[in-house]
Amino acid sequence: MRWKRVYAVAFALHFLLISTVSCRELTFNVARGLTIAPGPARSVAQRFEPVVEAALGRHLGPQNPVRTALSTYWHLGGIEGGYGFFAPNVPSSYKLVLELHDASGRIEYDLPRVGSHAAGLRIASLLDQVGRTQSEPMREYIVRSMAASAWRDHPQAVLVRAVFGKVVPPTIDEAGQGKKETYQVLFVYDFSRADTEPPPHE
């Protein structure tokens, strides 16, 4: 029956795309030596990587209709990335601490606050993105916006120092010896009220 053939072809193309996207993540990790795969596997992955990229249309220009169509489809279907969550290794987590300085020199500390646990997980995702991004202007832009909420809770503050860092948890053995997590400062930003508050007309 014709309808079955149409469905079968769609099935094949859909899962070819999903497998290719997943292979892309796998080859990316192996090619960059992020895994325990031996050296020869790494060089195979490095050779295989451009093939996978080409199969996904990534070699085409950003305005190319094939590339755009593929990108659109995988975003609509939720298949834009692989499934290697917490793999090959669990990444570090990040933390933003806000130091609030008032006119007398007194310092208070605060963290970005949200109203629910569900939103808290999303803020953690945002902090991970801030920690991983290579774009300094984007990092500063997001941190400044997160710092802006502190003015509402601390009206007496004249300066907010946003300290962005990585949380380094102890290994199992280190924890057994009593070692606690450490906080490694990565970036520090100072914002005055004028830096973070929106213009009056907004």
Binding site: L26, V30, G82
Partner: peptide, 12 residues
């Protein structure tokens, strides 16, 4: 794919 990616991480 989730499992394969994890298998390639020594610490799992």
């Amino acid at each position: 794919y989730g499992g394969l990616n994890k298998c390639l991480g020594a610490s799992w």
